[in-house]
């Protein structure tokens, strides 16, 4: 899922300065699962904003709303009827959701309440880790299911650097060395011979470097 983290409160306060009626809009997708932008978080942020603005003598009226997904026109349309009542949307979706909202509603200010941080999963409740960098050319076959692009701090494709120590990365002793994990897995799978295959210079066109990407299912096009 896409992981997000709430922006610092002061930054959010600055964004909504001058707006007296806003909608705090949650998303029922990834950010609900990672506990940053769903129904509950909308209520928490709204409550905080009302209190802070009240305290400053500049009360703000807030419509609290959460839709199924902010990255899907079908659901985005659902808030249209409420728009005349507000003068800004504070979106608690990931960056994709904020973009979709902004593209859909011209003339409406749309602000991000989250920083979209990475694609990953939960180790346990409330603890999320990065696992994919959406490079667009999956190499996990060669690396026993552990991604060196997302998990090696230098995205090295041909093995660990000289800073790998006791299974940890040179940048932080809390960070696993991705190549140690890969080697351990290759060994356990009896695939160590794969390590010595030279991983050729990468084609980064499938990555963001090739410009904004899209994916089209032809059988759904009319």
């Amino acid at each position: 899922m896409v992981i997000g983290e709430r922006k610092p409160f002061d930054e959010i306060m600055k964004m909504i300065e001058g707006h007296n009626k806003i909608m705090v809009l949650g998303c029922g997708g990834c950010v609900t699962v990672c506990l940053t932008g769903g129904h509950d978080e909308v209520r928490v942020l709204s409550s905080q904003l009302r209190m802070a603005r009240d305290k400053d003598g500049k009360p703000v009226e807030i419509i609290e709303k959460t839709i199924e997904r902010q990255c899907d026109p079908e659901y985005i349309e659902g808030v249209q009827a409420l728009l005349p009542e507000v003068d800004a949307i504070l979106s608690m979706a990931c960056g994709a959701g904020v973009n979709f909202m902004a593209e859909t509603y011209s003339g409406m200010a749309v602000y991000p309440a989250l920083n979209t941080t990475f694609v990953g999963g939960s180790k346990k409740e409330g603890y999320y880790v990065e696992r994919c960098q959406t490079c667009g050319d999956c190499k996990l076959y060669f690396t026993a299911g552990i991604c060196p692009i997302a998990r090696c701090s230098k995205s090295l494709l041909n093995g660990p650097c000289g800073g790998s120590t006791k299974g940890k990365c040179e940048i932080d002793s809390e960070v696993d060395c991705a190549w140690q994990l890969i080697i351990d897995r290759l060994k356990s799978l009896n695939q160590m011979d794969r390590y010595e295959d030279f991983m050729a210079v990468n084609d980064w066109r499938s990555n963001r470097d090739g410009g904004p990407r899209k994916m089209i299912r032809e059988d759904f096009q009319r």
């Binding site: 041909n158 660990p160 000289g162 080697i183």
Partner: peptide, 21 residues
């Protein structure tokens, strides 16, 4: 460069072989 002392130790020579290749 090569660091014979970094981990995992057992791939340090294979890694050198990769550089040689």
């Amino acid at each position: 460069a090569e660091n014979p002392f970094a981990d995992p130790f057992e791939i340090r020579v294979p890694r050198l072989a990769k550089k040689v290749a």
